[in-house]
Design a protein around this nucleic acid. Structure first.
Lengths: 218, 218
DNA sequence: GTCTATAGTTAGATAGAC
DNA sequence: GTCTATCTAACTATAGAC
């Protein structure tokens, strides 16, 4: 791995462990065993590192949140989206913990974030519409965007919520599954008939993952 | 107002405007026209100020989130709780924006927060139970705590969510009403019959407040 | 591409006079 | 209770050698 990539990966790991605020460029360099000067050869400043991390975040969503295929099984696609969200919430959890601060310090990043989130809202709304047309759920059209916001809010802030409620402020991968259980909870009261049973089953899968002690804490 | 109280009020105002991270003890003193030394006469350090602000937060909830009276109108009591949440979300919005950081820096505050939030969870669950017994909503007992968590998550992180999505990163009091609309949205799909109509009406009230340009931006 | 050394800045906090 | 002066520590970033 190139030094540049290693700086990005080390930064993500340290930010997730200790929080973006607590980690300085010196900490990152020190953890890697390189000099601060070398870090600044590869990145203009800390914001430059954060922008590169955000690119990874964007790409993850671009690669995994592809539009629904109406000919395929809707529930299987939903499960795929939820799995990709698990990865997102785990890998970039530091980002949500300091979202307001990070965005307020960098207007360019903020602009990118706004654009990306607007697109994500569309995509989430499209999934809800897909569930509606597949008759998994029944929902007024006027509530679709509102529900999409709630899904986004939950995905974004589940990890800070868990951290705030854990004694040591730490997060395990299993905690993430609890967030997915909450996302499914958002859909569940709109479900009917066979759709309700499917959602309950899917929710139970994530409840099991959440409780599974065998689960690796990567 | 005593200098001590004025420091607390000024801190809240500055933290809400610029974020807790961006505001130093010097900024607070300067804004008040007092010396940094004077500020440190009244407070041991920045965390000491934050603990005092958290006391106000706790007291607000203690005074406004009193247990439901089953003999009184359930919907009226719900409306009262929601109004007190508006105040909470507005007045202490800086706190949620930096929740992870603030709690990770002060173990004593963290302990207080954990205790307070555990109690709040009970109270929110009790309200949901109240809505169920008043037959406003219909919900499985196993979902009540999950839904209570979602209410708490929404109340806590609605303001960071709005800030992250606003061009200038600023928040107006009207934005808060949008969060209450989301809380009601959480209940709505569980509602039935007359209860559904009442919830829709209540939600519409907050939608109107959200859109009302006359609303003061205190 | 990497290092050492360090400049420049700011935040947090204290000492001691009034 | 309030001020001035100041110190320490830490963080960001750069210069210049290798």
């Amino acid at each position: 791995m190139s030094t540049k990539d290693k700086i990005i990966q080390t930064s993500i790991a340290l930010f997730n462990q200790h929080g973006e605020r607590a980690i300085t460029t010196n900490h990152i360099a020190s953890e890697m065993g390189i000099s601060p000067g070398n870090l600044y050869y590869h990145f203009k400043n800390k914001e430059d590192i954060l922008r590169n991390i955000f690119s990874l975040y964007k790409n993850h969503l671009k690669d995994n949140f592809i539009p629904m295929d109406k000919k395929q099984d809707v529930m299987a696609q939903l499960a795929g989206y939820l799995d990709s969200l698990v990865e997102l919430m785990w890998r970039f959890n530091f980002f949500y913990n300091n979202l307001t601060d990070i965005l307020s310090r960098d207007n360019e990043l903020k602009a990118q974030y706004l654009e990306q989130q607007a697109q994500l809202l569309e995509q989430v709304a499209a999934v809800i519409v897909g569930l509606k047309y597949a008759e998994v759920i029944e929902i007024d059209d006027s509530d679709i965007v509102e529900l999409a916001h709630m899904v986004k809010l939950t995905v974004s802030f589940w990890t800070p919520y868990v951290k705030a409620h854990s004694e040591d402020g730490r997060l395990s991968k299993q905690d993430i599954f609890g967030g997915i259980v909450k996302v499914i909870l958002l859909f569940k009261p709109y479900a009917k008939g066979a759709g309700l049973d499917q959602l309950k089953e899917l929710q139970q899968e994530y409840i099991n993952k959440q409780l599974d002690v065998e689960q690796a804490v990567a």
